Amino acid sequence: MILYRPVGTKELELIKKSNYRSFPPRLPEQPIFYPVLNEQYATEIASGWNVKYNDDHKGYVTKFEVDDSYCGQFEVHQVGAHIIRKYGSLQIN
């Protein structure tokens, strides 16, 4: 399954340090990890939230693959329009 995660510059730098192999522990200002199922929604978050609330006013979208059977144990939440679908708190290391 392909998932997306909007991130700010600080988090992207930590992802780079892992050689793009893992997400870092959550930052204090972002305690919840929730990947989204749609690139368009992730882009909206990155451009609306990350750009607005990060010190450098930049937002990025990460794209990663997770085993379908692993994701099957978590509930998908739809919060509004059909593109706004995310996992509540998927545990990914």
Rank of each mutant, 00 (worst) to 15 (best):
M1C: 01
L3V: 09
L3K: 00
L3M: 01
L3D: 02
L3E: 03
Y4V: 02
Y4T: 08
Y4S: 08
R5M: 11
R5H: 10
R5W: 11
P6Q: 07
V7F: 03
K10H: 12
E13S: 06
E13K: 14
L14P: 11
L14Y: 11
L14N: 11
I15E: 05
K16N: 09
K17Y: 12
K17N: 05
S18G: 04
S18C: 03
N19H: 14
N19G: 15
N19P: 11
Y20T: 09
F23V: 03
F23Y: 03
F23K: 02
P24F: 12
R26V: 01
R26L: 08
E29N: 15
Q30D: 15
P31E: 08
I32D: 02
F33D: 03
Y34L: 08
P35Y: 02
P35I: 00
V36I: 01
L37H: 08
N38W: 01
N38K: 05
N38S: 07
Q40L: 10
Y41K: 03
Y41D: 04
A42H: 04
A42T: 00
A42G: 04
T43D: 06
T43W: 01
E44C: 10
I45S: 04
A46I: 15
A46D: 10
S47G: 13
W49F: 15
W49R: 14
W49A: 13
N50M: 15
N50L: 12
K52A: 15
K52I: 07
N54P: 07
H57V: 06
K58Q: 15
K58V: 12
G59Q: 09
G59R: 11
G59V: 12
G59Y: 11
V61S: 04
T62S: 05
K63H: 04
K63P: 03
K63R: 03
K63I: 05
E65Y: 13
V66G: 03
D67K: 07
D67Q: 07
D67H: 01
D68G: 06
Y70P: 00
C71T: 10
C71H: 01
G72W: 01
G72K: 04
Q73D: 11
Q73T: 10
E75R: 06
E75S: 09
V76G: 00
V79Q: 15
G80M: 00
A81M: 01
A81L: 00
A81E: 07
A81F: 02
H82W: 06
I83F: 02
I83N: 07
I84A: 03
I84V: 09
R85N: 07
K86P: 06
K86I: 09
Y87F: 04
S89G: 14
L90N: 00
Q91K: 15
I92F: 05
I92C: 06
N93D: 14
N93A: 14
N93V: 11
